[in-house]
Nucleic acid binder design. Structure first.
Length: 573
RNA sequence: GCGCCCAUAGCUCAGCCGGAUAGAGCAUCGGAUUUCUAAUCCGACGGUCGGAGGUUCGAGUCCUCCUGGGCGCGCCA
């Protein structure tokens, strides 16, 4: 199904061709209702290129622009904009068409790609904390959107399950472990033994030496240390799974760092052989002397003591994703501090001849009310589990105040959807690069650009259909419903519904789910205005059927849109 | 020292490819409910878009410099 934007762009291109003009400019949604529904700056762009008068060019263009089947006559305005206004019956017809379309008008990508999305990536033997929210929630939303757009998505959790910290963990396990505590709360106990070992090591060189030996033994494949390592990984994975269940996040594969261990030496040998890497001060390094910003920043892929590091692992990871998974594109949803590291990794991939499209998708930090990195009162990372529990509890409290008649099972379900949805939406509704201040009050507010506000719009619609079903079974509008757009609120709502298909693909231009979030907020806003102005069930035909259809479509778009963000909607709240 | 990111209303944030008079929410003030969830809606108030130059018909958006904040920069991940 062609969007209005695509339709008008096509007609504009035809007009330009008929006028012997080169393609230029673009058709965009109007910046102000006074300018109609869509506008194009084509005449302005061409005027610059050709050195002609923009308004005269605009005139020449609209003489050949045939939009009589969908729009009022095009208007020239301002410096030479061409404004286009859709006719209500055009919008009504599109709305009726959307009602029959499972995809709500969203076209699949013309060139589907195989995309590996690397997001989340928690560390073993450490609790997931507030810092994991952005990567996890953003990566999941991008995966859902890319998948809906017809791409083949492989969600990969690149778990931090290998590294020098295991020297500490294994030493602590052997010397400090409290078994009953481990059974009660595995992660807490792992953290405790890690911390205590760290303190001992700081004070005592013998402990430092012992820790190092444990690490060497693990890396050499010592059976006891390996089984301790394996157990910590298994315990951690169980903990991660719990969080992912609460967050409704699902991975296709979970290739931790350890997965690449037996590929590392081959990676280094290959890079040495191809002269991409060289030996410097005893370490194997890759220099980027021809890339100014990396000229003095070599990547070390084998330490002078012979050990491998995370750069080695990431080079192997690139290999695996391209060679084994056959990815066209790799999206790395990893925080901004690793920009330099990934520039190096991607530069190495280029030298190895990989042509895949690598995107490092970075994001800002979550701050506390004090505008510093969000921490607990004692200065520690806020455990994700505690944060999600609190979200659900707070949502529950609000629901009990506002709607005490709900059953217990309904309250549990709603608190879950509202609380978790609020956390996710608060994150996704903001531009990913900005640091944001975490605020329960704001994210759980029923006013403004929040999950509860959007969920409430959906709930109100469902309530209408429940009420309608008392008189006669009706759980949704019939697919052959006709739209009649009389009131301005009806036309405005219908117009917005038609824009869903235009908005969804733009999210991937620059990986900005907040564009979709903003759209959904405006949609809910338009719906509420409609809801205030236009009674549904009490209205006469044909308005009643038309309004029911608008409600149905709005509910579907809200449901689908929130689903693309990874957010669930309750039927009541 | 070098590099990356950020700076928009009192507060929290939008503003994708440069477009017309820079928008929301909160807060403040004023309205709307015998109602399908008022958990909402309508209106008012509120801005030298950190500063200075530049490119352009047109700059919050692009370029240069400066200020302030965050992060990173050879053997942690």
């Amino acid at each position: 199904m062609e969007t209005f934007q695509a339709l008008l762009a096509r007609k504009l291109a035809e007009a330009l061709s008929a006028a012997d003009l080169p393609p230029a400019g673009s058709v965009t949604p109007a910046t102000d209702p006074r300018f109609g529904d869509y506008q194009t700056n084509t005449a302005l762009v061409l005027a610059k290129q050709l050195g002609e008068n923009p308004r005269a060019l605009a005139q020449k263009i609209i003489e050949r622009l045939d939009v009589s089947d969908c729009c009022d006559p095009p208007q020239i305005a301002g410096a030479g904009f061409i404004n286009l206004t859709l006719r209500p019956e055009t919008i009504a017809a599109k709305g009726a068409e959307l009602l029959r379309d499972e995809r709500l008008g969203v076209e699949k990508a013309t060139e589907p790609k195989r995309i590996v999305i690397d997001f989340g990536s928690p560390n073993v033997a450490k609790p997931m904390h507030v810092g994991h929210i952005r990567s996890t929630v953003l990566g999941d939303a991008l995966a859902r959107i890319a998948s809906f757009l017809g791409h083949e998505v492989i969600r990969d959790n690149h778990i931090g399950d290998w590294g020098t910290q295991f020297g500490m963990v294994i030493y602590g396990w052997k010397n400090l472990l409290d078994r009953p505590a481990l059974e009660r709360d595995p992660i807490a106990e792992l953290v405790r033994i890690y911390k205590e070992t760290n303190e001992k090591a700081a004070a005592d060189s013998k402990v430092r030496e012992a820790v190092r030996e444990e690490l060497v033994k693990l890396q050499a494949g010592d059976p006891e240390n390996f089984s301790i390592w394996k157990e910590t990984v298994d315990l951690s994975m169980k903990e991660f799974e719990r969080a992912y269940q609460v967050l409704d996040i699902h991975y296709d594969i979970q290739r931790g760092e350890s997965f690449y261990n037996d590929r590392l030496s081959a990676v280094v040998e290959r890079l040495l052989k191809s002269k991409i890497a060289e030996i410097s001060e005893g370490a194997v390094c890759v220099f980027f002397r021809d890339i100014p910003e990396l000229a003095e920043k070599p990547a070390i892929i084998r330490k002078s003591d012979g050990g491998f590091n995370y750069a080695t692992t990431d080079v192997a990871t690139v290999d695996y994703r391209i060679q084994d998974l056959k990815a066209d594109t790799v999206w790395l949803v990893v925080g901004a501090p690793q920009i330099l590291h990934f520039k190096q990794i991607i530069a190495i991939a280029r030298r190895e001849g990989y042509t895949a499209d690598f995107r490092h998708i970075t994001f800002g930090s979550i701050l506390g009310e004090d505008r510093k990195l969000m921490k607990t009162r004692s200065g520690e990372n806020v455990p994700l589990r505690d944060l999600l529990d609190e979200a659900v509890q707070r949502a529950r409290k609000i629901i009990e105040e506002k709607n005490p008649d709900l059953s217990e099972s309904e309250k549990i379900d709603i608190a879950q959807k509202v609380g978790i949805g609020a956390v996710k939406y608060y994150d996704l509704s903001q531009y990913r690069m900005t640091d944001y201040i975490f605020s329960w009050e704001r994210m759980l507010s029923f006013q403004g650009n929040t999950a509860p506000y959007l969920q409430n719009a959906y709930v109100r619609i469902r309530s209408i259909f429940r009420k309608a079903a008392v008189a006669a079974p009706l759980w949704g509008a019939p697919e052959d419903a006709k739209l009649v757009l009389a009131a301005p609120e009806e036309e405005n709502l219908a117009t917005r519904l038609c824009q869903f298909a235009e908005v969804v693909p733009t999210v991937l231009n620059d990986f900005r789910p907040n564009i979709l979030a903003n759209y959904l907020f405006e949609l809910a806003n338009s719906f509420h205005a409609f809801y205030e102005a236009c009674p549904v069930l009490k209205s006469e035909e044909p308005a009643r059927s038309s309004r029911l259809a608008l409600c149905e479509l709005t509910a579907r778009v809200l449901h689908r849109g929130l689903d693309l963000l990874g957010i669930a909607v309750p039927e009541k709240m």
